[in-house]
Design a protein around this nucleic acid. Structure first.
Lengths: 195, 195
DNA sequence: GTCTATATGCTGATAGAC
DNA sequence: GTCTATCAGCATATAGAC
């Protein structure tokens, strides 16, 4: 009997974060009250504070965990090899990873201004690291003479903006499959960086 | 003496909208109270309701006026001629027009979810019209054999997403001039659509 | 046109019973 | 771990004096 009856912290904690994620994504951080989150989980407000210090921590934790997982998922990607292959791999990865996590992605770039200044610095650093991975691919390609880009850093931002757009309109079961969408975007990215 | 002394509706109205615009853009619609807007203008809350029916109308009017002006500014653009020239003109126009109105642009795509359902429909239609102008250029280019795009509609969205990204990082007085930024983006757009 | 005062309800967060 | 009760403050919007 290692556990008190009625102790559900191991399951309730994730449910609180899941509810906050869904509500923040659909209504925005500022428009979601702790009461709404509690009622979504089936709790009273007070109980929420067993799982988070405050509302701000809830937002920060969601964004932080998302970006940590994103970088973790990229950890296996090769940093060597043909830049064109690496770029294709990055493009496919970005589209698929983000399509599977629309709420996390939405929050990660819509709610930056609702982070406290200290939390913002942390999140911004993680975003820069991810962007830096694409920039490295582009710079390597320019050095190798495969890509023609005057400003790899600016181009990296441009490509990520373009790819992020997918999450704003793509819906499963729509006219195009994700494979088809991936092909359309990859063709544009490939040509945009080429000589 | 055509005007009562102390009557400032002609000047106060625009100041209210300007304050709302600035505050909505920097803090988000839900996080900005009518009190904050009033104090920004130098009024008490009650006086605000001489200039707007409610907070929602304030948001809708800002977005509506922005999109109407955007479409108006495009009205002179030629719908004939070389698709490549028209695309370059669109790209330059979009970057410059949006760079001059960062707050309006930010609100127009960040605060869509805070519109009432009826208002959302109106705004969405205006956005579709603008997107449709780019799509028409791309489709014409595909027909003319100048562009190679399997999905002009998807490509239009991709290009607009990419161009919109400029407003999220570009700051005047930074390392690159707007001319240079425009060149970088135009080179990528041009290559992305070409055969 | 602007003010003050007010109605009514929600906010984040905490205290203490169970 | 969850509940109820409560705090102090702010939300949108309106009414009526000037």
């Amino acid at each position: 009997m290692a556990r008190t009856q009625g102790s559900h912290s191991d399951i309730t904690g994730p449910r609180v974060r899941a509810a906050a994620l869904r509500l923040f994504a659909s209504q925005g951080y500022a428009a979601v009250s702790m009461r709404k989150i509690a009622s979504e989980v089936g709790l009273q407000v007070g109980a929420l504070y067993n799982y988070t210090a405050d509302k701000q921590s809830l937002l920060f934790d969601l964004m932080n965990e998302h970006l940590q997982a994103l970088l973790e998922a990229r950890a296996n990607a090769s940093a060597n090899g043909d830049p064109m292959d690496r770029l294709q791999e990055f493009t496919a990865f970005h589209i698929r990873y983000h399509e599977e996590r629309p709420d996390e992605v939405f929050i990660a770039y819509m709610e930056l201004r609702n982070l406290s200044p200290e939390n913002f610095v942390v999140i911004e650093k993680l975003r820069d690291r991810y962007e830096g991975e694409l920039e490295a691919i582009l710079s390597d390609g320019v050095r190798a003479g495969v890509f023609d880009l005057a400003e790899p850093k600016v181009s990296a931002r441009a490509i990520i903006s373009m790819l992020n757009g997918v999450t704003t309109w793509y819906r499963r079961g729509g006219r195009l499959s994700l494979d088809e969408v991936e092909t359309v975007y990859w063709n544009m990215v490939r040509k945009a960086v080429s000589r």
